[in-house]
Each structure stands twice: as structure tokens, then as C-alpha cells.
């Protein structure tokens, strides 16, 4: 069975995002980019399944600008067998990405897709579920544990108020939560080896997918900031402020 893992190139999580001066986008020029952390977890899970013999091949896919090649090289260095870049300079929204992935899933005859539960840039949290619906597949979101059997997967999910374990029919889309695993690091020899692994480039046109954005961005702004408060010197002062100034206790 082949596992397809979509990986997104996003602003590094340590960097605070700022709006462009014209308010019509997010300033990314010259800033450090990285693989979306949830996708690292997804890739790690796919690699572990392959190492356990539950999968034959792990294919990493990224959709976006040429620079997404870097993200794919990282995925290859971590252990993906090959990579596909769906190359476009156009803005991609989750629905379009899911449609691109659907075509690749069918072309590759993948039996499982593991993706991050959300990308830390747009925080939309949709792509995996959209893909599952478009394919008519089952889904398991927010996975914290995955066990594969012949024709089903048992997945423990982080839900509001606790944990739920579900059994989904294969093929399926699984989206990863933070505690599914701890991703490995790429070693230098593997980074060298990754340069020789296959990286195919295709275009949305070649896949016959309409990627036109549906949502029009009106503006991006910083939300109302909190006014900085004060320092209290003692616990007694804190209690006094909470009682008599803030009146919250």
C-alpha cells in the first residue's frame, strides 16, 4: 500500500507573522520557512508504518511555488521514497489543494493519506476532510494513535473533553494531532541521499484541476492588542487588585 503525505511550506512557527504594509497579505519576504509541524508528524507516522511493513511506499506531495521543493527535499531526507511538486505561483486555498491531491491519490492508487490537522499559517484545518469527502473515503481527524489492519484502521482521536477510538474502513484520510509521535531529524547522509531521490513536478493544468481561489481577501490586520498591564510586588497586592480593581474575585 502506498501512503501519500501532503506537506506544506509555511512560515517557521517561531516567527511572528506581520501584515504587508498595504494590508493585502502576509509579509513572507526573506523570512525563514519550514515544513508545517503537523505535516512532520504525518510524515513520521507514514514512515513508521512503512518501517513496520504496513506500507510499501511513502510519497510526499507539496502544492505551491517552486520553493516548496525545499520542503519536499526535507521530506525525502526524512525518509519519503519520492516526491511530487504541484507547481503554481497562484494562491492556493484548501478546496483547490484537496482537488489536486485527489487527482494524485487516484493516479498513484494510494491506500492511505496522512496529513496534518491544520497548517499553522492559515489555521483553516480543512484539507484532509475535504479530500476524504471528495474521494468518498472515511476520515479520522486529530489522531493521537493509529493502528492499521488489512482493511481498516483503528484511530484514537483527541476530541473535546477526552479521547475517542474509532475504526474506519480503508482507504482513509487520517489527520494528525500533536501527540501522535515525535518526528525524527534528518541526518546529514540522508540529506545527501535525498538529493538523488525522484522529485516530479506537475502543474494544476496537467492535472486538469481548477484552482481559482474562492475566497477573496479584503484585508489582513493585527487584531486589537492588549494594553500592557502592571507588575505587582506581592501576592497580597495581587489579591487586592483582583478584588478591588478588576473585581473578578
Amino acid at each position: 500500500m502506498k501512503i501519500l503525505v501532503p506537506v506544506k511550506r509555511v512560515l517557521d512557527y517561531n516567527i511572528k507573522a506581520r501584515a504587508k504594509a498595504d494590508g493585502l497579505g502576509v509579509e513572507l519576504a526573506g523570512l525563514k520557512m519550514a515544513m508545517n509541524p503537523f505535516d512532520e508528524i504525518a510524515l513520521e507516522e507514514a514512515l513508521r508504518l512503512k518501517e513496520r511493513g504496513a506500507a510499501t511506499e511513502v510519497i510526499a506531495v507539496s502544492c505551491g511555488a517552486i520553493a516548496c521543493q525545499d520542503t519536499l527535499r526535507t521530506a525525502l531526507a526524512l525518509g519519503a521514497d519520492r516526491a511530487i511538486l504541484v507547481s503554481t505561483e497562484c494562491e492556493l486555498q484548501p478546496l483547490a489543494v484537496a482537488k489536486l491531491l485527489r487527482v494524485l491519490v487516484n493516479r498513484e492508487e494510494a491506500g492511505l493519506v496522512i496529513c496534518g490537522k491544520q497548517a499553522i499559517d492559515d489555521d483553516a484545518g480543512q484539507t484532509g476532510q475535504i479530500l476524504a469527502a471528495l474521494l468518498g473515503w472515511s476520515q479520522a481527524t486529530f489522531a493521537s494513535q493509529v493502528t492499521l489492519e488489512a482493511n481498516h484502521a483503528t484511530v484514537t482521536r483527541e476530541i473535546d473533553g477526552g479521547l475517542e477510538t474509532i475504526v474506519v474502513q480503508m482507504p482513509a484520510v487520517i489527520t494528525t494531532d500533536l501527540r501522535l509521535n515525535e518526528p525524527r531529524y534528518a541526518t546529514l547522509p540522508n540529506i545527501m541521499k535525498a538529493k538523488k531521490k525522484p522529485l516530479e513536478t506537475v502543474t494544476p493544468d496537467a492535472l486538469n484541476v481548477d484552482i481559482a481561489p474562492r475566497l477573496m481577501l479584503i484585508k489582513v490586520v493585527e487584531p486589537p492588542a492588549r494594553v500592557a498591564g502592571i507588575r505587582v510586588a506581592t501576592v497580597a497586592e495581587l489579591v487586592d487588585k483582583l478584588k478591588n480593581e478588576a473585581r473578578v474575585i
Binding site: D123, Q139, T141, R157, E158, I159, R214
Partner: peptide, 23 residues
């Protein structure tokens, strides 16, 4: 945008071929 809402709503949007607006 609860665990339930986040899970099923994108499926609805997908099959209506519309863009979900999250959160």
C-alpha cells in the same frame, strides 16, 4: 468550530463545491 464541527463541516463544503470559512 468544535472537534465535531471541524470534522464534518469541510466534508459538507467539499461536496457542495464551496469554500469553508473556518473559525
Amino acid at each position: 468550530s468544535s472537534a465535531v464541527g471541524k470534522s464534518f463541516m469541510p466534508r459538507v463544503a467539499a461536496l457542495l463545491d464551496v469554500a469553508q470559512i473556518s473559525d
